[in-house]
Structures are given as structure tokens and as C-alpha cells.
């Protein structure tokens, strides 16, 4: 569907936002790419979904998406989470673009809380929905102060916080929202992805854009940019590990979700990235429970772009 036909059928401009607004957001995105990890203020609009539910990511996606793009939206790693479904429908309706659940087919991936397991390519852009863009926010609540700290590259507070973790627990007790340093300069919040995903940001061939609607900030990690998780020489950064492989596809070394099976302590661990898991099962991989998977985990054939 071309843009004009789309405007006629929905009453809204292509991808909802008017062109002036898109231009304003693109300028913020360009600035963000030029200063990796720096939070660029932008005139975030009120969107037809609530603040805190992905309005920043939606605005970034709306500003960069074109009619030929193929969009994937995930929440918690899955395409079928209710809010991911809702955002995907929003773009299917307002932009008429093709949507997909397959990571490898997508040109734009909007995400909340995860980075897909499959390595992204230079032809892809990943858009993160960010609730609190400021990595120092819970150490210093004032924006006026944190902007100064960033300007001076004064990240002592953060190092003290990590050190105190070690002093108290013997290790750093931050499991998601784990702060990173981008291109050797700005300390950045990776959005609340689990720290498991931090290494995927480092030297990624894909453009990584971050949108925080309520807080009115956009930031970016350009392709092939150094992203280092903060740590100490004697306490190097470590990602989470899981004791068991995925119960459905048998894969190891990916991020798993714990699914409660009964009220007697029964648990299974399955891939958080649902597309990755499906693809492996289609290739014939089997986990220990895939023979007798619960009905609610059975995959229905994905029907996309037919929302009315």
C-alpha cells in the first residue's frame, strides 16, 4: 500500500506522525548517532498509547520506517506478548507495512527488554523502548545534576555503587539495566534488558536506537561501536548462565524464561526469544519437554498483517 492510499484509508499520515514531527525526531536521531550514548532531548509527542508503554520506541520507529520496511516487534523476547501485538497492529494499520516474527527477515526490530539471540546484520535497525534513559537516575534524581555529571564524564557515583555491591554481596548485584560505556565516553542505560544482552550491543553491525517518550530522550549506538559493560579488573563483567538447556529446543547459552508448571515446584526453562526457539524446532532440534509441551506453548501458524 502506498502512503497516499494509506492516509486515505486510516485518516492519518503514513506511520501516524505528521512529517514535521518525523523530521524533528530524525534530527534528534542523527544527533544521537553523532554522539554515541548521549541522551538527546526531543519534543516527544502524546501518542495514542500510554506513556511507559513504548511511546518512545514507537516514535523512533514511526520516524524511520518506510513503505518497504519489514517490521518485527518483540516484548520480553516474544512476538506474541500483548503489548508487542498491539504495537505491531498499530504499524500494520497506520503504515500498512509488512510485519514479521522472523528476526532474519525484519529490517526494523522494535523491542522491549531483549535483544534477539540471532546476530543482527548491518541491514537491520533495532529500536529499544526505554522507560528511564538516565543510568544515574537512581543515584541522583535531578536531571539538572545528571546532565552535569554526563557533561563532566563524572561517573564516580556509578563506580561507587558497583563497588558497594561487591563489598556487600561479593559481586555486582545488578542483573538488568546494567550500565555500559559507549565509545569510551558516555555511560548509557541499555534499557532494562538483562545484562545477558549487553555483550550483543558491543560492535553490533546493526544500528541501535533508543527512544524514551515520557522522559523525552533519544540516544543511539551506531554500528560497530564499542560498548563496554562497567566492571573492575578484579571483578570482571559476567553474564547470567542457566543450568539447564531450553526445554523445548535444547539450546544452551541463551536467555531462558522460567515457566511455572504446577503448584508443587514444577518448572521448565524455555527460550525467551520465541522466534529463535521456533526456528530451532523447525530445524528438528528437540528439548527434553518438547514431546509433551503444554498446550499453551504449542505454536499456531503466525498470521500477520491481516488485522482488521
Amino acid at each position: 500500500m502506498n502512503a497516499a492510499a494509506n492516509a486515505q484509508s486510516t485518516g492519518y499520515n503514513f506511520a501516524y506522525l505528521d512529517e514535521q514531527t518525523k523530521r524533528m525526531i530524525r534530527r534528534a536521531i542523527l544527533k544521537a548517532i553523532a554522539i554515541p550514548g548521549y541522551q538527546v532531548p526531543f519534543a516527544s509527542r502524546e501518542m495514542p498509547m500510554p506513556y511507559g508503554w513504548g511511546t518512545g520506541g514507537v516514535q523512533v520507529t514511526a520516524a524511520i520506517i518506510g513503505p518497504d520496511d519489514v517490521l518485527k516487534v518483540i516484548d520480553q523476547g516474544s512476538d506474541d506478548t500483548t503489548n508487542a501485538v498491539s504495537i505491531r497492529k498499530f504499524f500494520a494499520k497506520t503504515a500498512g507495512v509488512e510485519t514479521t516474527t522472523e528476526t532474519k527477515r525484519a529490517t526494523i526490530i522494535q523491542t522491549r527488554h531483549r535483544i534477539p539471540e540471532r546476530e543482527l546484520t548491518a541491514k537491520q535497525t533495532i529500536v529499544f523502548q526505554v522507560p528511564i534513559p538516565e543510568p544515574l537516575r537512581f543515584l541522583e534524581p535531578r536531571e539538572t545534576e545528571t546532565r552535569k555529571l554526563h557533561a563532566l564524564a563524572d561517573y564516580g557515583l556509578m563506580h561507587v555503587k558497583l563497588y558497594e555491591d561487591i563489598a556487600r554481596h561479593g559481586h555486582i548485584a545488578t542483573t538488568y539495566d546494567y550500565p555500559v560505556e559507549v565509545a569510551g565516553r558516555y555511560v548509557m542505560n541499555p534499557s532494562p534488558t538483562p545484562k545477558f544482552d549487553n555483550p550483543k550491543m558491543d560492535m553490533s553491525p546493526a544500528l541501535q536506537l533508543f527512544g524514551a517518550g515520557r522522559e523525552k530522550r533519544i540516544y543511539a549506538v551506531p554500528p560497530f561501536t564499542k560498548v563496554r559493560s562497567l566492571d573492575f579488573e578484579d571483578h570482571p563483567f559476567k553474564v547470567q548462565t542457566f543450568d539447564t538447556p531450553c526445554a523445548l529446543c535444547g539450546v544452551e547459552n541463551v536467555y531462558l524464561d522460567e515457566v511455572v508448571l504446577d503448584d508443587r515446584g514444577g518448572r521448565m526453562f524455555v527460550c525467551s526469544d520465541s522466534d529463535f526457539c521456533e526456528e530451532r524446532r523447525a530445524e528438528g532440534h528437540r528439548g527434553e519437554l518438547s514431546g509433551e509441551e503444554p498446550a499453551f506453548l504449542k505454536t499456531a501458524p503466525a498470521v500477520e498483517g491481516e488485522a482488521t
Binding site: Y51, G52, Q76, T175, Y176, P194, R214, Q240, D257
Partner: peptide
């Protein structure tokens, strides 16, 4: 919006 976004799934973070 932000208070009610806590209704959204957070199980990836919670898993961590």
C-alpha cells in the same frame, strides 16, 4: 502511563 506500565510483563527482568 508509567505507573500502569507495571502491568506489562516484566518476566525477563524478573528472571534476572
Amino acid at each position: 502511563g508509567f505507573v500502569e506500565h507495571l502491568k506489562l510483563p516484566h518476566y525477563v527482568d524478573f528472571q534476572a
